[in-house]
Design a binder for these strands. Structure first.
Length: 282
DNA sequence: CCGACAACCTGTGAGC
DNA sequence: TGCTCACAGGTTGTCG
């Protein structure tokens, strides 16, 4: 389901309802996520108050405190391919659906809430750890955030000089830059006019500058649209996205390029579909 | 260090 | 209607 814009959409939805709520209970129905949910997960979370909800790459970080506020910890969650968080009022009918794996029951300022995690493919994950630890193994090797000044054309150029992989694959490498998944890699390469199969070390500095501009633009547009609507994406109110981002290439193989009408081509990089225009992208 | 590929899972849609 | 197959937003781990 989620790429960075979707995760950011979820983060904003959760933030609007869960700040200052306190964990009253945790129910884990299936511990078998990407990594097994720790045996002491429920106990660690009970009594914690949510003070902030942040995002790093496609991870959500719920910042927590307990007691007088000096004891800080973090709930780290990833939605994988098919995970979703939906906030329910605790007193409304709550039929358990297939793949509703985790409930976090929260005492809010006005009403009791249930934060429910559903994930059919179970590629998502949940961890609780002490502190705000940037050294957490899952976070330690992540590249810069795309929507910060840390991502520049110069940065990408410098860090791809010895990389012969296709630019498409480099762009999706989380150690180089985070948050660019398959959809937005396809879209930003099209917008930048760069052939997805071009070796990363054969892309000029000028073209990396253009690519960075397009990555930032397409991600920003998608966030503004509330996350793209793809299959089962739902926001934290349980509603599907209301806006289908107007894709140039993603999912359009065989159809005419919206710029030059050349039929779009399909190829694969690491098992992931790449759609491109052989005329517009060089 | 780099790159290729398998693995983790279930659901859905296409084709027969 | 029902079966089989390919494929789907992500990331880690292993091997050469």
């Amino acid at each position: 389901m989620p790429e960075l814009p979707e995760v950011e959409t979820v983060r904003r939805g959760l933030e609007s309802r869960l700040i200052d709520a306190t964990v009253a209970d945790v129910v884990v129905r299936d511990r078998r996520l990407r990594w097994a949910v720790a045996a002491d997960f429920e106990a660690k979370l009970r009594g914690q108050r949510i003070v902030a909800i942040e995002r790093r790459s496609k991870y959500l970080l719920f910042r927590l405190t307990k007691g007088n506020g000096t004891e800080k910890s973090t709930l780290l969650a990833h939605l994988g391919m098919t995970g979703s968080f939906v906030v329910h009022a605790a007193d409304s009918p709550l039929a358990i659906k297939t793949h509703d794996h985790v409930d976090v029951v929260l005492t809010g300022r006005r009403e009791s809430l249930v934060l429910r995690y559903n994930d059919p493919r179970r590629f998502g994950s949940m961890h609780h750890f002490a502190g705000l630890d940037a050294a957490q193994p899952l976070l330690a090797h992540l590249g810069p955030e795309p929507l910060t000044d840390q991502l520049t054309g110069e940065y990408l150029y410098q860090h791809t000089r010895r990389r012969s992989v296709a630019i498409k694959q480099a762009l999706m490498d989380n150690t180089l830059v985070v948050g660019v998944g398959n959809i937005y890699a396809n879209e930003s390469l099209f917008r930048a006019g760069i052939h997805p199969d071009r070796a990363a070390n054969q892309v000029s500095l000028a073209r990396y500058k253009r690519l960075v501009l397009e990555v930032k633009t397409v991600l920003t547009e998608a966030i503004a649209a509330g996350g793209s609507t793809l299959r089962d994406f739902v926001n934290t109110a349980g509603q599907p996205g209301y806006f289908q981002l107007d894709y140039f290439v993603y999912g359009r193989d065989g159809q005419p390029c919206k710029v030059c009408a050349t039929p779009l081509k399909l190829m694969r990089h690491g098992g992931r579909a790449t759609v491109f225009c052989s005329s517009c992208q060089r």
